[in-house]
Simulated assay, not measured.
Amino acid sequence: MRDAVTTRSALVMLGVLLLQLGFALSYMGAFHAPEPHKVPITLVAPPAVEREMVARLDALPGDPLQVTPVADRAEARERLLDRRTDAALVVDPARRTDTLLVASAGGPSATTAATEILQEVARAQNRTIVVRDLRAPSAGDSRGLSSFYLVLSWTIGGYLAASALNMAAGSKKPTLRRTLVRLAAMLPYGFVSGIGGAIIVGPVLDCLPGAFWELVGIGTLVVFASGAVGVALQSVAGTVGLGLTILIFTILGNPSSGGVYPSSLLPPFWSAIGQALPPGAGTTVVRNTVYFDGNATTGALWILGAWAFGGVVVAILAAALREGRKRRGPRTDTAAAAAV
C-alpha cells in the first residue's frame, strides 16, 4: 500500500484537489450573481435635458451606469463602434420615444444589462425606448461567445503542448538547449493552431466569418504566449508549474475574460484581473478584430506580447541559471578536495 501511494503522489493529488476546488470557486464566484456596475453608456440629449438625465442615471442605486454625454448621434455612434461605450441613448424631448443604439457583437450581456436598466428608467417617466443594434453577432455566433471559446481552445492547447514536451522528456527540468528547442517548437505549433482555429470558426462553422489571416496571427500569438508561460513555469517549478499555468489561464483567466460576462458585470476581483490575463486580452482582440475593424485592440495585443516575452525570458533565465549552478558544483568539489 505504501508503495502504491507515495508521499509525492499524495501531494500531487492534493494539488489536483486544490485546482478542482479553485475551478469551482472561481467560475461560480464570477458567474453566480452578475450585477451591472458602471456599464459605460453615452447620452445624446439637448442641453436643457442633458444635465437632468445624467443626474438621474448617475443616481441609480448601485451605480449600474457610467454616463458620458456627447454632442450628437454621430459621435455616439462612433464611440459605440470604437468600443468606448456599450450603448448610446439618444433622447428626443419632442416625442415620447427615445432610441438606444447598441452593438451586441461586443457582448450581448452588457447590451442586455444596459437595455433593461434604461427601459426601466424610461417606464418610470412614461416613455418608451426603441433599440437599434448597429453591430449584431453573425448568424453562427448568435450568443456572441465564439470569440471566447476560440481563445479558450488556443490557451489550453498552448500550455498542454508545453506540458506534453515536458512529459516526453520525463518531466525533468530542461537544459538551456532543450528550453530553446521547446520555445522554438511553440512557434510552428501556434501557427498551425491559429490556422486550425480560423478554419473551424470560418469556413467550417461560419461563427466568425472574415478576418481569416488576422485570426491566424492572433491565434499564433495566443498559443505561443500560453505555451511560453507553460515552458517557463515548468522550467522553474517542474510538475507544479503545470498547475500554476492552469491556475493562471483556466481558473483565473477564463471566468474573468469578459467572454461570458464583461468586466462591468463581474465582481471586483475578476473585473480587475480579466484584461491583464491572456484569455481576456485574446478574447478582446478576436472579438474587436472580427466585428469592429480592430478598434480598441492595441492594449490587449501588448498584454499578449508581454506574456509571451515574459515566458521566453523566464524560461531561458531559469535554464541558464540551473546550468550555471551545475557547472560551478563540480569545480567547488574539486577545489575542496585539493585543499584537503
Rank of each mutant, 00 (worst) to 15 (best):
Ala308Lys: 01
Phe148Tyr: 08
Gln234Asp: 02
Trp154Arg: 13
Ala87Tyr: 00
Ser26Arg: 01
Leu176Tyr: 12
Met1Thr: 15
Ala161Leu: 10
Glu35His: 14
Leu266Gln: 07
Trp213Ile: 05
Thr239Val: 15
Gly190Leu: 11
Lys173Cys: 08
Leu150Glu: 01
Val70Cys: 11
Gly202Phe: 06
Lys38Cys: 15
Thr179Tyr: 08
Pro64Cys: 07
Leu65Glu: 00
Gly305Trp: 03
Ser264Ile: 13
Gly194Tyr: 00
Glu120Met: 14
Tyr261Glu: 10
Ala319Lys: 06
Glu52Ile: 13
Ser171Asp: 12
Ala30Glu: 07
Ala71Arg: 09
Ala300Arg: 01
Pro93Trp: 08
Leu57Trp: 04
Leu60Asn: 01
Leu304Asn: 02
Leu317Asp: 06
Leu176Ser: 05
Gly227Leu: 01
Gly157Glu: 01
Leu160Cys: 13
Ala276Cys: 13
Phe23Ala: 06
Gly107Arg: 03
Gly158Tyr: 00
Val12Cys: 09
Val90Asn: 00
Thr245Val: 12
Arg127His: 06
Gly210Ala: 07
Leu65Cys: 05
Asp293Cys: 13
Leu321Ala: 11
Ala87Phe: 05
Phe249Glu: 07
Gly157Lys: 00
Val223Gln: 06
Pro209Lys: 08
Leu317Asn: 10
Gly107Glu: 11
Leu152Gln: 14
Glu50Arg: 08
Ala59Ile: 11
Ala315Lys: 03
Gly196Lys: 08
Ala4Gly: 14
Leu21Glu: 12
Tyr149Val: 06
Val312Tyr: 02
Asp98Ser: 08
Pro61Gln: 14
Leu152Glu: 04
Pro330Ala: 09
Leu152Trp: 05
Ala272Met: 08
Pro188Ser: 13
Gly144Asp: 07
Leu317Ile: 14
Ala185Gln: 04
Asn288Lys: 06
Pro267His: 09
Leu145Gln: 12
Thr220Met: 10
Thr128Ile: 15
Phe224Pro: 02
Met1Val: 08
Leu14Asn: 14
Gly22Glu: 06
Ala74Met: 14
Pro46Asp: 03
Arg2Ser: 09
Ala45Glu: 01
Ala10Gln: 12
Ser257Ile: 05
Ile218Asn: 02
Leu215Phe: 13
Leu17Lys: 14
Ala113Ser: 13
Val5Ala: 07
Tyr159Leu: 09
Thr283Ala: 10
Ala308Arg: 00
Ala124Arg: 12
Glu52Arg: 09
Ile195Met: 11
Gly282Ser: 10
Asp293Met: 07
Leu183Val: 11
Arg96Pro: 15
Pro278Asp: 03
Asp58Gln: 04
Pro40Ala: 06
Ala198Tyr: 01
Ala136Arg: 06
Val102Ala: 03
Trp270Ala: 01
Asp206Val: 09
Ala335Leu: 12
Ala308Val: 03
Phe23Gln: 09
Val90Pro: 00
Val290Thr: 02
Ser104Met: 12
Leu18Trp: 11
Arg51Glu: 12
Ala232Leu: 07
Asp72Pro: 02
Ala87His: 03
Gly144Trp: 01
Gly253Met: 02
Pro69Ala: 15
Arg182Met: 15
Ala55Thr: 09
Leu14Met: 09
Gly15Trp: 02
Arg83Ile: 12
Thr297Tyr: 04
Ser26Tyr: 03
Leu277Cys: 07
Glu214His: 04
Leu19His: 09
Ala306Tyr: 05
